Amino acid sequence: MIALIVPCYNEEKRLHMEAFTAARNLGIDFFFVDDGSKDKTAEMVAQAAQKHPFIHLVRLEKNNGKAEAVRRGMVEVQKKTHIDENSWIGFWDADLATPLTEIPKMLEYAKLYAKVDSIWCSRVYRLGADVKRSALRHYLGRGFATLVGELLHIKSYDSQCGAKLFKPATIQNAFGEKFIGKWVFDVEILLRLKNFEVIEYPVTEWHDVPGSKVKIHREIFRVFWEILKIRKKYIKN
């Protein structure tokens, strides 16, 4: 089976439930984690859950940030579903900037490797791919990847794409403990999974969706401070 955590905070205007319900043929259970939204996000999901057994709502009492919403979602999935070693558990951005149709392609791509514990989507500009990303976000992303490469020794082209799948054996290592940062937590997952096989899948389609809650160019100093705290905890030399 495939179970996807979808963290949501005030996503009423960007959450298109019909796109998720239309993906029923992909065999996915969706766990929408409402992170203390003040709009009608939770109500939208609850209405869909009444009609579709593969839609689930997890409500958090207050806004904790994406990192904790994803982590709590991972815990709930293990409680509510039958997970075996062949299952995949992941998280996916609510705006569907990465289409759900990428999932079968991710799983096919993983077959090129002898062993895969986690698959991370990566927004690589290349011939044949439909990747539409603003120039600002692209260059900030390249700068971020360079920074974490130097400070955290991470060799990821694009750790921040919000579409990832994990084997059940990785969940406790990756999500058992709270994250240092509220948003820049993906690199922390990579550091926690240093003994697992993590691959990057170059997406065939990705479209920038307006309305993101993360404004990296406005919060660059907070992001840098979080990276330093992560380095202090995980990098010993």
Rank of each mutant, 00 (worst) to 15 (best):
K13G: 00
L190V: 01
A69H: 14
A69C: 15
G141W: 08
H56E: 07
A49Q: 02
K155T: 13
E85M: 08
A110E: 08
E188P: 00
G181E: 02
T170K: 02
K213R: 08
A69T: 13
E43H: 14
K194H: 06
R14P: 02
K13Y: 03
I230G: 04
T170I: 00
E226D: 15
L152V: 08
R126D: 10
E219S: 15
N63A: 13
H217P: 02
R123T: 00
A23T: 04
F91S: 04
R59H: 12
A49C: 06
K178Q: 11
Q47M: 08
L96A: 07
H217L: 00
L107I: 11
R14S: 09
W183K: 11
S156V: 04
I171D: 02
H52E: 08
D95L: 07
V131Q: 03
K40M: 08
R126Y: 02
H153G: 03
G27N: 02
D34T: 00
L193A: 02
R231P: 12
H207T: 03
Q172E: 14
L136G: 10
R123Y: 10
E150V: 12
A42G: 12
C8H: 06
I28E: 02
V214F: 15
A135P: 07
P210D: 06
T146H: 14
I83L: 07
D34H: 01
F20D: 06
R222A: 14
S118R: 00
N86I: 10
H217W: 11
G162F: 05
M1Y: 05
V75N: 05
I28N: 08
N64T: 11
E85P: 01
H52T: 07
G73H: 02
S118K: 02
Y139M: 12
L26W: 03
M1S: 13
K66D: 07
E61P: 10
F221Y: 15
Y234C: 03
I235D: 03
W92Y: 14
L136N: 11
A48Y: 04
P202N: 07
M74K: 04
K111L: 09
E11A: 13
H207Y: 01
W183L: 14
I89D: 08
P202S: 02
E76H: 08
F224G: 07
Y113F: 15
F144G: 04
K62V: 12
V75E: 10
I171Y: 03
K213H: 09
K79H: 12
L60T: 04
Y113I: 10
Y109V: 15
E12K: 12
R222T: 10
H52D: 09
P210R: 15
A97H: 09
K182P: 05
V198G: 07
F221N: 14
M44T: 06
W206F: 14
A114D: 09
F144C: 00
I103P: 08
D117R: 03
K62D: 07
S212C: 08
T98R: 02
R133S: 13
E11R: 10
I55K: 05
A19I: 05
